[in-house]
Structures are given as C-alpha cells and as structure tokens.
C-alpha cells in the first residue's frame, strides 16, 4: 500500500541509484586513485553523446536524456572496468552499450539485456588483456592521465585481483587464505551500504539482492562440500569480485530483470548459482556480467511462468 502520491519519478529513480553508488566509488578512488574518476568521466561523456547522436539520427526528442539512464549505464560500466584500462576501452564499451544494448531496441524500457553488462562482456571477450589488468596502488592525478591516455608500459602497476589469485592458488595447490580484508572487501562493503540506501529509499525491492546472495552462499557452500579443491567458500565470494555491486546495482536494473515477485527470486537465485559456477570452473575471473546476461535472456519466459495469482482466478 502506498500512502499519498509517491514523489519518485523515473529520472529521480535513476538518480537515486547513482547516489547509492557514491560510497563504493569513493572507496575505489581512495584505493586506486584518479583512474577511476577519468573512466567515469569518459564514460559519461561517451554515453550521453552516443545517446544524443542516435536520437538526432532518429529525429527523436533528446529530452529522454534527462531520465539519467544513459548516465547510470555509463557509470556502471566505468566502475566495472579496470581503472588503468586505456581510454578507448571505455569509449568503445560505452558506445556499444548505449547503441547496441539500448537504443537499437528503441531506448529505455525496451532493452532485453542489461546495457552496462553487455558492454562489459563485449569488452572482456574482445580485449581480455586490457580488461584483466587491475591495479592495487593509488594513481595520482598525472599518473592516471598517463596510464589511460598514453600507452606506457603499465605492467609495473598492474596486479591480479583476489579472485584470480585465489583461482591460481587453488590450481597450483597452494594454501590460500580466503578470509583476508583487502581493498575489494572494502569496496564491496561500500556497495552493500549503498544498496541498503536504495532499499531504504524504496528504489529496489528485496527479492533480487537477497535471492542472489542466497544463490551465491548456497552454491559456494555446496561446492565446498563436494569439490573442496576448487571452492573458496561463501564468505570469500560474498565480498570479492563484483558481488555487492551486482546484487544491488546491476541485477536490480528493472528493465532487464524479471518483474514479478516470484520471478525475481528465481532470477536472482539462478544468477547467484551461475556466478559461482563461472568463477570456479570458467575461464573468466568473474561471472557476474555473463550470468546477468544469461538470465536476462530468460526473463520473458520467467515472467510469463511466474505470474502472480490474479484475484478471483
């Protein structure tokens, strides 16, 4: 039951999601430096420009830019890619996300797939090297510029993520301590906090994040039991990779996620399971993007078969 006229409108809704991201992004900036800011700025410019150009070509009103959805897509993509990736990566990815992921289907509301994750998967497949070089040190204003805009050797800066480290360690049979608070854990906590804010603001519902986290916990616990050589355990998975960002900001994209209450539970849970499977056995380090896209494809079917019971039927 809703009391009085709700104040939210669609563009405000998107803005709230962007607000929710602030803490996580701030932590990313604290750890990785100016690269983060450059990527976001580049993505925002590209995303909005791509949308405006496309709308101009279609001779449509560019007013819809005010719904902030292009901006949100751009930011989500920018914070998903490594902060030391060259500039053309983010430009290419954002324009692909906006044009192929959204505008070709007729704009906001019609896209079957999550545009940001589509852009990310596209980049990861096409440029695996650039997309898996992460840094663990703070880049100053100038360093960031240098890294992103000139092709200097950045091997010195880059390091593997904890997810990758864990995978290698387990493969080599080395001892790996899953409980260790590092940068990724902090960033995940930041996004968790932002997610709670969104929930408090009633921007997102509880079904998707909770069922997703449940899926992650259940599947990783199960793997611990049956295949402990490869498994890293629920606690590790919850706070590494893009788990929290995915749970509260990516999966909850209403357009491409399931829209029925029951469907959302199925949607989130299956993504959780897929993420663990891909992280544990797949070739790519993290599975959130692929798992989200895979379940996006299944959304029309999930929606149809999870219709709520209609009053009187």
């Amino acid at each position: 039951m809703i009391t009085g006229k709700p104040i939210l409108n669609t563009s405000n809704l998107m803005l709230q999601v962007i607000y929710g991201l602030i803490l996580g992004v701030a932590l990313q900036f604290y750890f990785f430096g100016w690269g983060v800011i450059y990527q976001i700025t580049l993505a925002l410019i590209t995303g909005i420009a791509a949308e405006i150009i496309f709308l101009k070509i279609r001779k449509k009103s560019i007013d819809v830019i005010k719904d902030n959805s292009a901006a949100l897509t751009a930011i989500l993509l920018a914070i998903s890619i490594p902060s030391i990736a060259p500039w053309w990566i983010v430009v290419l990815g954002t324009s692909f996300a906006i044009i192929f992921g959204k505008q070709l289907y007729g704009g906001l509301g019609s896209n079957p797939l999550n545009p940001a994750m589509l852009g990310y998967a596209f980049l990861l497949i096409s440029f695996p090297l650039e997309m898996t070089r992460w840094t663990s040190s703070f880049l100053s204003f100038g360093e960031g510029l240098n890294v992103i805009f000139s092709s200097i050797n950045i091997d010195a800066l880059s390091s593997a993520t904890r997810l990758e480290e864990a995978k290698f360690a387990l493969m080599e049979g080395e001892v790996f301590n899953p409980i260790q608070i590092d940068q990724t854990v902090w960033i995940n906590l930041g996004f968790l906090f932002g997610g709670v804010y969104l929930f408090y603001k009633k921007v997102i519902t509880w079904q998707i994040p909770l069922s997703f986290l449940a899926g992650i916990i259940v599947m990783s616990a199960l793997l611990m039991l049956v295949d402990s050589d490869h498994a890293m355990g629920p606690v590790f998975h919850l706070f590494h990779g893009a788990t929290m960002l995915g749970a509260f900001f990516i999966l909850t994209d209403p357009v491409s996620s399931s829209t029925t209450p029951r469907g959302r539970l199925i949607f989130g849970f299956l993504i959780g399971i897929l993420v663990i499977i891909i992280r544990t056995y797949g070739s790519y380090p993290d599975g959130v993007a692929f798992a989200v896209l895979l379940l996006n494809i299944a959304v029309p079917l999930i929606d149809y078969y999870s219709k709520p019971k209609v009053f009187g039927r």
């Binding site: 192929f100 992921g101 589509l118 596209f122 797949g282 070739s283 790519y284 692929f290 494809i297």
Partner: peptide, 17 residues
C-alpha cells in the same frame, strides 16, 4: 540477428566449463 549475437556473447561466459 543482433539479439542472437548478444545471446552468443552471453553464452561465451560458459567457456572453460
């Protein structure tokens, strides 16, 4: 066709399984 291509991208996630 574009959508089919995007489905292909999504299925790339299974590589290595």
């Amino acid at each position: 066709l574009i959508t089919a291509g995007m489905m292909s991208i999504a299925f790339m996630g299974f590589i290595g399984l």
